[in-house]
Simulated scan of single mutants.
Amino acid sequence: MDDILQQLRQDLDAAQDSKQLEQVRIKYLGRKGLITTLAKSTDFSRLSPEEKRSFGQRLNTLKSEAERLLAEAAARIQALEKDRVRRIAGLDLSLPSIDRRMGSIHPIALVQMELEEIFQGMGFRVLTGYEVELEYYNFDALNIPPDHPARDMQDTFWLENGMLLRTHTSANQVRALETYGVPLRAIFPGRCFRNEAIDASHENTFYQLEGLLVDRDISVAHLIAVMKTLLSQVFRREVTVRLRPGFFPFVEPGFELDVQCLICGGKGCSTCKQTGWIELIPCGLVHPKVLEYGRVDPQVYSGFAFGMGLTRLAMMKYGIPDIRLFNSGDIRFYEQFPAAF
């Protein structure tokens, strides 16, 4: 028994990891281990009662001492392994990271968050729609029948099941009226898709924000008031705008609200196509047929709708000259923008 105990101590001192320690445990306390075999192989019939008692006590003591030594070795090896993990490649992984930079938010997301806050302050609710949309809500319910030339202006990605990738967030107008009824104030921010020829100011994947207000006795004056409030808060400075007639099948009358290019100050550049102006907010009074599609009586209620390109708005707000930078995936571009607006 003394020899077994001495050999156990030597084996435990040599063990350097959990796998080696387990091999030592099996060698001494396993089913065929030295201590287990010692108890099974002893011929107790040749021992006197006093020798049996003495042998049993010593065997129990040996087993208990072996378990104690194994427990101490396990604690030692566990501490060694933790220290080894902390010091991989000379690094103490328990220390805080040296590079603890804050992440940044995409500039389009920054603009969307800011607009949502502004419109919520004016009583508008924020609603999301479907990027894969039905033809009915994207075109028909907006007074754009299949033979209408306005469809040709929105080169559309059609799916094999007859649905499409929405070409504008205006597709949410009738959905919102059907769901919430009137009066209604809502904005619909989201991603849109068109088969565009990509250049400095056009992308095939871009972001819009559609707005809709329907109530009794709504006029163009209400529309202008909301647009002025919006622009003064977005740009936090005076901007030059112009309102000119524009045609959109789902509004009547329709307008184009342009903002003087903030990249070149109105002098003309590639972003504004040398005109000095950027088309920013198409808008107008909701067409009576659209109200009817939304199950609203146009004799009682009226409203206005507007849409703006979040992508173009971000270009104006942050002075970004090329729309292709937004989807470039270049982390150096995104790191230029603050973590919060």
Rank of each mutant, 00 (worst) to 15 (best):
T240S: 10
V241D: 00
I224Y: 00
V241E: 00
L257W: 06
P183Q: 10
R185V: 06
F188K: 08
Y293S: 13
P245E: 13
I224Q: 12
R237S: 08
C264M: 07
Q208V: 08
P282Q: 12
S270D: 13
L213T: 08
P249I: 05
H222L: 00
V296H: 03
L165P: 03
T156Q: 12
R194E: 02
N161F: 09
M163Y: 09
G294R: 02
K267S: 14
L209D: 00
P249W: 06
L164N: 08
F188Y: 14
R194A: 04
Q274R: 12
T179Y: 07
P149V: 12
E252H: 08
V296K: 04
E292R: 14
V174T: 10
V251R: 08
Q173M: 15
L230I: 05
Q274A: 11
M227I: 14
D297A: 03
V239L: 00
G162P: 06
E292G: 00
V239M: 06
L257Y: 04
M227H: 10
D199M: 07
P183M: 10
C272E: 02
F250V: 01
R151A: 11
I187S: 07
A197E: 14
R185A: 14
V234R: 05
V220M: 13
R185F: 02
V241L: 13
F250C: 02
D215A: 12
R194H: 08
M163K: 14
L285G: 05
F247P: 04
Y180A: 11
Q208D: 08
F255H: 09
L165W: 12
K228E: 15
F248S: 04
I198D: 01
E203D: 15
A225N: 09
T205I: 15
E178I: 01
L213Y: 13
L164D: 08
A186C: 13
V214F: 03
A225T: 13
K289R: 14
